[in-house]
Every structure is written in C-alpha cells, then in structure tokens.
Amino acid sequence: MTTRLVIGGAGVLLGLYGAWLLLSRHASASIVDAGVWLVAGVVLHDLVLAPLFLVLTLVATRVLPPAARAPVTVGAVVLGSTTLLAVPVLGRFGAKADNPTLLDRDYTAGWLLFAGLVLAGVVLATVVRARRGGGSPTGRGAHGPGARR
C-alpha cells in the first residue's frame, strides 16, 4: 500500500506541474480553448465513437454469418483505427500552396488500396473459416489477415 501511495503521490505531482504549466503560461482565451479540446476528446469518444461502434457491432452480429464475424471484427479494428489516425492527412487540412513537399501523396488512393487489402483479407479469412466449418464464437484464434494459429 505504501508503494502505491508513493507512486500515486508522484503522479499527482507530475500532473499538477502540467496543470501549472498550462494555467500559468497561457492567456485565458488559450486555456479555455485547450479546455474545450480536452473535454471534446472525452465526449467524442464516450458519447459518439463508442456508441457508434456498439451499434455497428449489434448490426454486424445480426447480419453477418458466424464465419465472417471474427474476420470482420479484426478488419474493423485495423481499418477503423488507422482511418481515424489518418483524418488529418485524408482531409489535407494543413496543405499549403507554397509547399508541395507537405502532404504530397494521393491519400485517397492510398486509403482505398489499404481498405481493399483489409477487405480482401477479411473475405479470404471468412471463406477459409466457412470451408473448415468454423465460425464458432469460441474458436481458438482470430483468422484475420496476418493472424495465424
């Protein structure tokens, strides 16, 4: 218990130092803006992204054949997380006319290629599982792309 109290106390001090940096070195308008972004992150995850994923899961379990469920889940985790982190490049929001070396790829084509590969992996894994007569929800492993028994 003492160890945990020491670690926890150290964490509180580190966090308070960060809060002091944030509050003492910025104008109040910037602090409010940063606060809005901090809160928005939690709200977006907890009240938008997570419920959306819940609904998608619910629909998927009703619509998909059992053999496809695990591969689709693996595909969704891979494609969903990478798509989310690629939002800044996919939108090209930071592109500048005077600097052609920034955001200089065809991100839409790259994403379509990536999504196509994931989809192919999902279909392949589903077919393999269906042939094996698999798809039982207690199956031993994921059969998504790259995941092998």
Partner: peptide, 24 residues
C-alpha cells in the same frame, strides 16, 4: 500534418498536457 484548427499554442500546450497525461 501542419493542421492547427485551434487557437492555443501547439508547442507549449502539448508540452503542458504531456505532464498532465503522464501524471494521470
């Protein structure tokens, strides 16, 4: 990606919140 859709200073705010994140 050089995208700044906010009004605060990225560098000093990312630095301060880094301490908050590691503390939490």
């Amino acid at each position: 990606a050089q995208w700044y859709p906010w009004a605060f200073s990225f560098r000093s705010t990312h630095y301060a919140v880094g301490w908050i994140a590691i503390g939490a």
